[in-house]
Amino acid sequence: MTDPAKHGTRIEVRNLTKKFGSLTAVDDLSFSVEPGRITGFLGPNGAGKTTTLRMLLGLVRPTHGTATIGGERYSEISNPQRVVGSALEATNFHPGRSGRNHLRVLADTTGVDTKRVDEMLELVGIPAAARQRAGGYSMGMRQRLALAAAMLGDPQVLLLDEPANGLDPEGIRWLRMFLRHLSSQGKTILISSHMLSEVEQTVDDVVIIANGRLIQQGSVADLHGEKRSIVRTSSAPALVSALIAAGISAQATDATMLEAIGDDMARVGDIALAAGLPIYELRPNQTDLEALFFELTESPENRNRNLAGSAGSGAIPGEHNPATGPAAPYEGATP
């Protein structure tokens, strides 16, 4: 066994496939996650995200392909809890045990100093609820407890399945800042979600899958595409000519609207002023990532084949389904 910390903590998934009988949950999937960056692992419910995370953690055996952390399979990592922290479910605790005692049991199991238990409870913002039974926690508090458990061993890698589920807006903002802080320390962070809008402001990179197959990978900036500006004026053709003469590519979309390449809107305004043309509207025009996400995942070839037929048929074992599971109140909800 080796220590991935000596070789970096890059996550590598190569040609990963998992079949459950005739059902292919993950289909020849390949992607990587870099240290010091937050990567969003996105796809519709049943796309194979949770199954992939479980293969990374050695909980599910791949049919073929590899899933490694720092170049090693999870089973080959020395003291894995010190290398990889995970939160795949916010219900993985004894409901009659307090949040603090839940973490103390984990600390004893992994050889972590118990003083870190209180440090983690403070870090995730639930010290006041530390001695309350975890079974009475809201879903948001359960998510925070799961995150505290994942961080207990101060791992270099975090694998989080739907970490924003159940958090109120303040909690989501806190989670975003918390993950940003961890990535600034060089940690490798992979978070799954079925909604791009939940993670767009948090992640640096995205991996989008559907039916267990990779359909898009890249930075959030790359997904937004080339920066452009939308301009409305009295004569779009006249302003297009002025912009092109000044070295800015532009194209009229109708008599009064045009699209200019780039995001230097001050310069566009200056050119319009010099040309004697009024500006009625001037705004950036970026790709709507949410629309792109649905366009990619709902195309006929990527539509979720596991939702066909009657409800519950063809479900992937272990895949996250928000329609099932314990009905805990949302964070901030009135009991």
Rank of each mutant, 00 (worst) to 15 (best):
M1Q: 13
M1C: 11
R10W: 07
I11K: 13
R14W: 02
T24Y: 08
L29V: 03
F31A: 02
E34Q: 13
R37Y: 01
R37N: 05
I38T: 00
T39Y: 10
P44W: 01
N45R: 04
T52N: 10
G58R: 07
L59S: 09
T63Y: 03
T66V: 12
G71A: 12
E76R: 15
E76W: 08
S78W: 04
N79Y: 09
Q81Y: 13
V84F: 10
G85T: 09
E89I: 03
T91Y: 12
R97N: 05
S98L: 09
T109G: 10
T110N: 13
K115V: 07
V117H: 04
E119H: 10
M120C: 13
M120S: 13
I126F: 10
R133D: 09
M139K: 14
R142K: 15
L147V: 10
A149V: 10
D154R: 13
L159V: 12
L159A: 10
D161A: 09
E162K: 04
E170K: 11
G171C: 03
S184A: 03
S184L: 04
K187F: 04
T188C: 11
I191A: 03
V199H: 00
V199E: 00
V199A: 01
Q201A: 14
V203F: 05
D204K: 00
V206W: 00
I209K: 02
I209F: 05
I215P: 11
S219D: 04
S219M: 07
V220K: 03
V220D: 04
H224M: 12
E226I: 07
K227R: 15
V231L: 14
S234Q: 14
A236F: 06
V240C: 14
A242D: 03
A242R: 00
G247P: 00
G247D: 08
A250S: 12
E259N: 07
D263A: 08
R267E: 12
L277P: 00
P278R: 06
P278F: 06
S299C: 09
N302W: 00
L307Q: 11
G314A: 11
E319W: 05
E319Y: 05
E319D: 14
H320V: 06
N321P: 11
N321E: 13
A323G: 15
P326Y: 09
P326H: 08
Y330G: 11
E331S: 08
P335V: 03
